[in-house]
Design a binder for these strands. Structure first.
Lengths: 219, 219, 219, 219
DNA sequence: CATGAATGAGGCTTCATTCAT
DNA sequence: GATGAATGAAGCCTCATTCAT
């Protein structure tokens, strides 16, 4: 696979596919379509959902769809970008007040669980993204990881986190978040029980904090 | 979502969909089809791959497919089961000689990277599995996690690993494996560089080993 | 075989399969399809006729078919119902002015010959109906017989027809109509010659009229 | 439609399609296939039954079918001819001892009911015959009618039956038999109740017997 | 004789997209 | 702006028939 830089992708994706509405009435239709798409793709998966499903759900005519989106793929991309923004800002908000990075990590994961519980579809959507448009999928995680790594780097500079490769750490933490969220919010539709969360947080904490003897850490 | 027990699923999936060949000639065809399916699904994704793609690749007529598989879905399920078995036994073999659990963990991840590099398709296949047959996807990870947790439990009993919730730990480790494998073997087609691996292993080691003060651990 | 009441069947068949058009343009297409179906099924028989045959004949695209009918079977059922209505009202009209039942019977058969000559397909369609949907076939004849028997019953009350089991009589008369129509309009494409018709009418007349001695008749 | 003479048809159909077995073992297989075909075509109808259905039922391999029959159609034709022979000889036997034609008519119909009850499939098979091979269907009824008419002609000469067009009469009687058999043996799986049969027989008797005044009869 | 394997034409159906109103 | 109609490519699948063993 050969991926562009995440930002590069965004720039490419910027222009195409979507025709913004010009009137108030148009805007309402546009939003109804996007909303319907989230529901339908969430229930059915990209390939098994049809455009008629979406227009029916939105309560508009079939032709109307193409007034705003150039293709099925385009509304999907639009949707992923929208949700990506939502997760990140949601987590951001939940973390904001926590000063220490290690504690922020825990808060972030907790927030991710909460978000996942509300948007169980998100999971399916991202999964589908790979098949539909690998670049989109790549961008989704890579841009996430980048921001993550930057925050970790800063924490290392402040001495809150052991000094190691921040990107590797970012992928570890994302993997933990995603897989534990799969186990509980997605599969069981519940927040994980205390013992489970306790273990997860304990594992992360021990893994992140600077050890006294510093073996294996960079200076 | 409401999933059955992993073993329950296996039993269900046992019977249907596949018709085993009765002659030597038939067996060869059967295998060619399975092999072709792995390639095609790897390249294209479940929904965009067609049965003709598979039969063409296998060099057999279109109707031949239906001699052995009742539908596209059935060959897919068969494939996943096949690959699941392959990964697990591959990793098992690589770990066998390592006595210490923490070191075995590292060896296991390293093995997973190697396997992923060889079967980059596996990644896509499992992803698609969710859309195609959620139970299959659930079974894939859940049965993996179960075995994982058992090994961890044993290690805890031997005092090699801190005594915490083994299942939670299993999902953490799986998440780390999968996401770091995505970053390098899948996206870059290479084994991760030493610094990356070092960080990952360090993180895991610190997270697993019993701490001297035992805070947060069960007795 | 286990058949529902004819009316019951109609009610069941009411709902499904057909989507009525919403615009004038759509209505024209719908009718063209129905017309084409009659021709094609008449020429080829249900199983050997394909949907493409129908859409080609109708001069529309293949997909258009599914805008109005859910399946081949559905257009077939629709057609039979349509033709059933046509025969009955055609015969009704031809009989209307004849006051005496025995003469009406002759007029009815004559009318049936005429109709059959125009719609030789009808014959084949009804035959196929058994294979396609036994209930439809049952309904076709049973509802016919029911109306028939009622008319005969009334004639018995007026003393025009010997008082016997009206239903049995109805099936006798239907059998005669159908088989003699087969012999001439269907096989030869002609109305039967005078001598043939004379014999048929004579047979019926003698069979229906109240005999002077009343042996075997109910009071 | 343009039909050949019934005998002409038979001669045509004589040669083709069937390869008689040469050994004892072969004969057994041949018969098993024919038997299986009757069952399967009876249950499913010609077009919906597949050759695999037949070979499975017969317990032989798929290829074996073509050792004895050149095509699906050929076994069907063979079957119809076989059954046609069966009905006629069965009825013949039942009528044999009845001397008077009018009584023989009743006995014949009764026999037809009995046969139909045993071979409900016959009904479906003949129906299908039209679609599969119109000539076969034509032959089936026409040859039946021919023999029928001859018997009636003889009875007219003996003064037992009114002198009218014997062929017309034959089709009337066949129609009555077939439709009343449909009403009871086929639809209800029972012999008709006494009142029903009484009416049918009364109708026929009155229609057949020479009237005192001879109006409408030939000299 | 017998059989399982193999085939490919052809049927039904779906659906993203374009048109006409 | 909006909508229902129309399209046809493309996919899945069945099955009569032919082959190879």
């Amino acid at each position: 696979m050969n991926f562009q830089d995440p930002e590069e992708f965004l720039r490419l994706a910027e222009d195409s596919g979507v025709t913004l509405p010009k009137t108030k009435r148009g805007e309402a239709t546009f939003n109804r379509l996007l909303q319907a798409a989230e529901e339908v793709f969430g229930e059915k998966n990209y390939y098994e959902a049809s455009i008629v499903d979406i227009t029916n759900r939105a309560g508009v005519g079939q032709g109307t769809f193409y007034l705003y989106f150039k293709s099925k793929k385009d509304i999907f991309v639009e949707l992923i970008k929208h949700l990506h923004h939502e997760v990140r800002s949601f987590i951001q908000r939940e973390i904001a007040q926590v000063s220490n990075r290690v504690d922020a990590e825990k808060a972030g994961i907790e927030a991710f669980y909460k978000f996942t519980l509300k948007h169980k579809d998100l999971y399916k959507l991202i999964r589908d993204a790979e098949g539909v448009e690998p670049n989109l999928w790549y961008w989704y995680y890579a841009s996430f990881a980048k921001a993550y790594a930057e925050r970790l780097k800063a924490a290392m500079d402040r001495g809150e986190v052991a000094r190691v490769d921040p990107e590797a750490l970012a992928y570890c933490l994302m993997g933990i978040s995603v897989f534990t969220a799969m186990r509980w919010p997605v599969w069981e539709g519940k927040m994980p029980p205390g013992e489970f969360t306790g273990t997860v947080f304990g594992f992360i904490t021990k893994g992140l904090v600077p050890s006294s003897d510093k073996r294996g850490e960079k200076k």
